[in-house]
Design a protein around this nucleic acid. Structure first.
Lengths: 229, 229
DNA sequence: CCAAAAGTGTTATAGCTACACCCATGT
DNA sequence: ACATGGGTGTAGCTATAACACTTTTGG
């Protein structure tokens, strides 16, 4: 391994699965490619990593370039390195996911609608490269993460109803949950703050609005409390 | 992105955390580097990935070259891509872990003892590159995996006592477990086969030997059974 | 007979599942 | 008044945690 120059001929990329929750469905952000390879195909937002760019920061750059979002935690999921996955040469890619709130979601869906779209995960068809496989792995990571960490709130507006939270869990897990048991469990964790506010303008009894209390969660998590749905 | 040639200047590597269980302790395989960079340092077994080599297969190749082991499942854990992690240029690395049985463990520890060693995880000191961080991430992955999947058996001989299994769990999780409750739980899963054999040559009541029944586990896992310690 | 680890059951508690009706609001 | 989703309690069951003594073997 004294001459390693023949090894330094690969490229590296990141691909992002950006999850949103809208109209009761989990959606992902996809872009229509304007250039070869895979011109005209829908693809996950992704980019080559610059030579002098940190890998994890590269994922944040892609998210920022595409959605304008900053300071959104990106979770590294898995790295894909089959030989022929990219037509232009040897490109190994690392997949990340991020969770974005509906507010960010609508702003961008409307302004770049020709190149960017939010697509419900059950309507995704053939994507460029190995992006269908990447999506599956991120989805499966999301499903296990949502059961063990309080990340669902990142997909909802700052204040939300318990029913909205339950629908979110049902959408991600693909199951239906018992309303009373779900509420009991979530409220017993004491990580939600009752803002004393209710919905307005709904054609039924207005629901209380809650807000995730990250401080309180951090405090009890240090004492060994485990979030678990 | 029409001229991408400037991107194809990176190299890629894999690093392997190879776990073994011996003398009641979790150990990892480390090698002493014979060449720069980090000549003379202890390091995780790792290698650059060939241009025409699949990433996951590359991890298997490294394991095979170092231990002679074949057909050992390698679990991809995480990818590390800070800019300056490798002195020779931009090298991004993917970490894998593998679990090997004691039989394989002793054979190689004796024959290459100057370059290769099994070190208890609590005696690991400074390793080359960012390998201490890589080790931590694999260890944390192992700890969560062992609670949710029946992988502990891969660290034990084909036949083992329940006490050995319990000690393994205690070593990985860093806790002590109640003997009666542990046995009840494991046996109630009905994934262990009682071979009707007992230990020999021990200075106390000889224990029954058990064997993991992968077929039985697969069958009940398909019915939704979840392994959980 | 002593040392060492194997093996074994019960009880109390906590958490989970299943389940049905009344309430507040807008139209 | 009706339609819509919000909000609530209990009982049975299951899983978990805590706990101590007898058994079998080798030396």
């Amino acid at each position: 391994m004294s001459d390693v120059s023949s090894f330094f001929k690969m490229a590296f990329s990141v691909d992002c699965v950006i999850f949103g929750f809208d109209e009761g469905k989990i959606k992902i952000l996809i872009i229509k490619r304007g250039e070869d390879p895979f011109k005209g195909f829908w693809a996950l937002p992704g980019n080559l990593v610059y030579l002098d760019e940190d890998l994890n920061l590269s994922a944040k750059r892609v998210l920022h370039e595409l959605t304008g979002l900053q300071n959104v935690p990106m979770q590294q999921v898995s790295t894909f390195g089959t030989i022929d996955r990219h037509p232009l040469g040897r490109v190994i890619t690392t997949a990340y996911y991020a969770l974005v709130k509906p507010a960010a979601l609508h702003a961008y869906a409307s302004s770049h609608v020709e190149q960017i779209a939010w697509l419900p995960i059950d309507e995704v068809e053939e994507l460029a490269f190995d992006h269908n496989i990447i999506l599956e792995s991120c989805l499966s990571k999301l499903r296990s993460a949502i059961k063990n960490r309080p990340i669902g709130f990142d997909l909802l507006p700052k204040q939300f109803t318990l029913s909205a939270l339950q629908k979110l869990y049902e959408a991600i897990l693909g199951t239906s949950l018992d309303k009373r048991n779900f509420r009991k469990k979530i409220l017993s964790m004491e990580i939600l703050e009752d803002k004393g506010v209710t919905q307005e303008g709904v054609a039924h009894r207005p629901a209380k609005l809650f807000q995730f209390d990250a401080e309180k969660y951090k405090a009890i998590a240090e004492d060994g409390f485990l979030f678990q749905i």
